[in-house]
Write a protein that binds this DNA or RNA. Structure first.
Lengths: 158, 158
DNA sequence: TTTAGTGCAAAGACTTTGCATGGCC
DNA sequence: GGCCATGCAAAGTCTTTGCACTAAA
């Protein structure tokens, strides 16, 4: 399920970056990276609970934030935000890419892929002299059945 | 420059929404809407400074937030976040839509449009039973001339 | 007159920072 | 051993909420 080969590759990437910048590879950083690579995206809080439950009960939340920011600098992670203000950290390299279709009425989020759109993106990038590494596409609107959605019923009451 | 016709249209939209929901059209809400319609996007803080300087010195920040959230519910505004954690409120209806091509090396940002991509987006949304109101597309990569870019030279130093 | 909105200040939520201690190189 | 990283707690930053008062409807 979670390929070890990928893990090793990322650890190597992390090590290289750390060495190059006179930083250190600690057990915490390794544990965070390992857990992070198992998911597509996660919040600092969730990663914290995950790690302190299963591996290192004494891990500090601040360390999670610091390391997550580090991973973003390296390019393994990328920050994202939905409508609330918490930060979601995407696993950029490992995850199977997908885009999002987001319902403004009921908070429903559908993940999809479109090779056709991706092709046009490449074309557009090339036209402007860009080489793409990744992208983010979010479509907002409302889904056909939002009136039956419990989340929406709830928040509509205010 | 700032077309009055548009202003009136939006005020009408706001009024309709307020009436329908037994809400009230206050001077504050009108002032906030007016100021908001003059920009493409703005933060609550900026809008607050703008309005308290020029129109209503006693306006509270909380009112700005409340009204901005209201405008988002109506569909005149939309929240967005860049990498820091502050919320940017986009003027959805007024602004000319564009997508972004972002260079990870030199911070260059190019705005572009692609009707072909938009068409595919609609198609994809329809396939999932969604009606779109708008979207966000950001392409990340590097531009062909980033090595000559001053911004990159600068930030590469760390 | 009734009900909702406002301003202010306090509370919240999330993230970063300071500092003494501990752990890589 | 030197220096960076960690944990903890405190401080920040941005946003929401409670409440008494004011103003639309």
């Amino acid at each position: 399920m979670h390929k070890g080969s990928s893990l090793n590759k990322e650890v190597a990437l992390l090590k290289r970056y750390l060495t190059k910048n006179h930083l250190k590879l600690t057990q915490q950083r390794e544990a965070i990276l390992e857990a992070f690579l198992k998911v597509d995206h996660i919040t600092a809080e969730e990663l914290y609970r995950e790690i302190s439950k299963k591996k290192r009960p004494q891990m500090g939340l601040a360390t999670i934030y610091r390391t997550l920011n580090l991973l973003c600098e390296i390019g393994i992670g990328q920050q994202r935000h939905f409508d609330d203000n918490r930060t979601i950290y995407d696993n950029v390299l490992h995850k199977k890419h997908h885009d999002h279709l987001i319902c403004n009425k009921c908070e429903k989020i559908i993940e999809f892929e479109s090779p056709a759109i991706e092709r046009l993106q490449e074309e557009m990038a090339a036209r402007h002299g860009f080489t793409l590494s990744n992208h983010r596409l979010e479509l907002f609107g409302h889904c056909i059945d939002w009136k039956n959605c419990r989340d929406w019923q709830k928040s509509a009451g205010r």
